[in-house]
Amino acid sequence: MISFSVDFWYAGIGAALIALSLLAFLLSKRLLKKLLAFNIMGSGVFLMMVGMAQTQNDGAADAVPQALVLTGIVVAVSATALALVVIRRFALASVVAALAAENKAAENDAAENDAAEKNGAERTGSDTAVSDTTVTDTALTDPNLNKNGDPQ
């Protein structure tokens, strides 16, 4: 049963959208762009799901894949929102890090200031300069914590 139908056409468009957004996802270096690509790829998968299923149903609506796609849309928006939250927090951490470094440079003269805190920033800062994969259990390098051992 291979003939042109609305369902078949949109399933094909869905496949093209998947390929196109895969290209964008893998080539783009920007996090938000990748997220957009993820969303469009999802839409492509959803189109394939409904379109392909309905070609099997003589072009009549099939409630099951439509319900699955509704679930999929909600899952996709959850994932997108989560990604955005993490991106925002990451950006904030970056800005704070940048400003702290600036601060350290500015206050280098005033030696009596808060030595412990500065050491903390310096130590962890140099860790990541080496490599982005040398992730330590970062809270443990925290000078404010754990000086007196176990809290128990």
Partner: peptide, 29 residues
């Protein structure tokens, strides 16, 4: 660093589950 790692993880996981879902869509179709 944890957020950095989490973002990598999240993007890999999202791409992986879409590939999985595409396969499921085809099987249902």
């Amino acid at each position: 660093p944890a957020l950095h790692a989490a973002l990598r993880y999240l993007y890999a996981a999202l791409l992986g589950s879409l590939a999985y879902l595409a396969g499921v869509a085809i099987l249902y179709g």
